[in-house]
Amino acid sequence: MLLAGGAAYALGAAATRAFTLPADVVTAIPIVALAVLVVVRWPWRPQPLVLPLPETRDSGTPPRSGHPFRAWAVLFAVVVAWELVEYLASGSRGEHPTLSSIADAVDRSYVLKAAVFFGWLCLGACILRRGARALPGAEGSTRPTGSTGPAEDL
């Protein structure tokens, strides 16, 4: 039901044009909604998620190496660095595309824009739900109805 509603909303939002009042309104509604919901549903004092490494999780043997978030952090850093290189490079945006200019090209297609908007809504819902799981001193007992646990993924 929520997915269908989100998809319908995204289809409607994709029909708007940037720099117009309708686009501002349809974009502002989810932003305000998430702001309200995180204040209402998120704990004031969260406990950061700590993951056991795979080896200790399953067999109790010492961890091999690495950190489960390191690869993602490195990739994020490289993306940010390349975005800055492209943004600051002299020359046209066509020669040095940034994520924004690529997104502009994607937004010219109604279907792609609707898909990107839907993905943005889904990410917001994921952020809200994941953040609502962490209440101090009550691990595992604070999941909202309908969630299935840490193994659930995107």
Partner: peptide, 9 residues
């Protein structure tokens, strides 16, 4: 999703 959960907590 776990990365998102780590960030969101």
């Amino acid at each position: 999703a776990v990365v998102v959960e780590r960030l969101a907590t």
